[in-house]
Structures are given as C-alpha cells and as structure tokens.
C-alpha cells in the first residue's frame, strides 16, 4: 500500500529513543517557506518532542497499577519489559505503551484481574504522527475502573506500511464502533474485529480523511472577486 515511503525497517515498529520522543521538526514561524519570510524568524528550528519515559516511583495509584499489571503478566509467562515498552507519567496521567502483539492479553488482564478491574473502555482514538517514522499510527485507549476509581491510558503504535493492531472487541464489546471509526478515519486495521467497515464516511469513500496527509478538503470561498483560501491552504503560525 505505502511501500517505498522511506522507512527502512518495514513492518517492525522502530525502537524508541529517550528522553522524549521526537515526532517532528518545526521550521520558521509564519509558514512562509518559499523565501518570502523577511521577519527574521525564518531560520527558527524547533524539535517537537513528546514527553519521555518516566522512572519509578510514578506517584499516586500509578505504581500500584503498574505493579499489579507486571505481576499479572509475569504469572502468564510474559516478560513485562517486552509487553510494556515504556510507561509515561505526564500531567498526572499514566500511559502504558504496549507492544501491539500483546495488546489483547494486556487488556484482558486489566479487565479481569480483581486488583486492576478496568471495566469500562472509553473507546479508541487514533493519532497520526507522520514524522514518527516506523510508528506513524497510534491507537490510544482510555480505560476506566469504576471499582477502584482509576483511569489509565494504553497506547499502541503501528507503522504506516503495516497498519495492523489487534482488535479488543472480544474483551470490550463497546469498542466495536470505536474501532470502525478509527479504521474509517485513519486506516488502522483492527485484526479480529467482527465487521471492520466504514462507519462515518460513505462506503465507497477513498482514503482516510483524518490522517495528516489527507487535506482538509476546503474549497476556496469567494467574496466579490476576493479569494479566501481554504483553511488548510492559508499561511499560519507554525
């Protein structure tokens, strides 16, 4: 599908860098990249970094959840370090970055273990990071435990050349429509989903509209001879 997009390691998710995860580089200030920038800000280069992995103690209930999860995974004969690629605590929220092949087992453990008991999955949200080579598509799950009154986040990533993530519908049936929506907008294929079809867009729609490389699709609006470019073609602050 997207062969030859320049990421050498093909279907295997790229290893992570620390500290922080570089997802892109921002240049200039006003979005003028054709040499018209006389503001002096044109040479500005800023690296965009997402928060990096955290070290213990994570604080709050996060340590307890992490301990229980790691213990439960060990009981099932898994190496926690391979399943949970990294744990990020940022803004008082915890994110477990899970290797995609273990997602189903992790969610099942999180739901069924009495000490974890995350009964409610609030769906999946796709995020597209074209700059994060080899890990372009992210699926983000928020799990809520009504029993223990906790919220955690799971994040799974897949390369653009192999956009497959296991479906968690058999663990959380509520994700049925959410996964269809994420497939519809981002083209993430959830393996094992009972009927992965488009849900929002018409069935014969081409492309995945909420990816970053898909244009907003605005058409220019005209007022008495003056053209107002569509929102995605205007100059803007970068």
């Amino acid at each position: 599908m997207t062969e030859g997009n320049g990421n050498g390691n093909g279907a295997v998710p790229a290893p992570r860098q620390d500290p922080g995860e570089v997802i892109g580089v921002r240049r200039g200030m006003f979005g003028a990249d054709k040499g018209g920038d006389t503001s002096g800000y044109g040479g500005l280069v800023r690296t965009v970094r997402l928060p990096g992995a955290s070290r213990r103690p994570y604080g709050g209930y996060f340590d307890e959840v992490a301990d229980e999860l790691e213990g439960a995974l060990e009981e099932q004969g898994l190496v926690p370090g391979e399943v949970i690629e990294k744990t990020v605590v940022d803004r008082n929220e915890v994110t477990f970055h899970v290797a995609r092949e273990h997602l189903l087992q992790v969610t099942r453990t999180l739901r069924d273990d009495p000490a974890l008991r995350f009964e409610l999955c609030t769906g999946v949200s796709g995020v597209h990071f074209p700059g994060d080579k080899g890990r372009e598509l992210h699926a983000v799950y928020h799990l809520r435990s009504i029993t223990h009154n906790r919220v955690i986040r799971l994040e799974v990533s897949a390369p653009d050349s192999d956009p497959h993530v296991p479906s968690v519908v058999e663990v959380y049936p509520t994700n049925d429509w959410h996964e269809r929506e994420t497939y519809d907008f981002f083209g993430l294929i959830f393996d094992g989903h009972p009927a992965l079809t488009r849900i929002m867009m018409p069935d014969d729609w081409q492309g995945f509209p909420q990816r970053k490389d898909y244009p907003l699709g605005g058409i220019p609006v005209e007022y008495k001879g003056a053209q107002i470019p569509a929102p995605d073609q205007r100059r803007s602050y970068s």
Binding site: M201, P209, Y214, P215, L216, G217, G218, I219, V221, A230, P231
Partner: peptide
C-alpha cells in the same frame, strides 16, 4: 446555505 464554518471534506458546501 454555504457549508458555513465546516469548509471541509465531509460537508456539502
């Protein structure tokens, strides 16, 4: 009447 503020892929303008 014109698509309004939703000048995007989903809405008929």
């Amino acid at each position: 009447s014109s698509g309004g503020m939703f000048n995007n892929y989903a809405i008929v303008q």
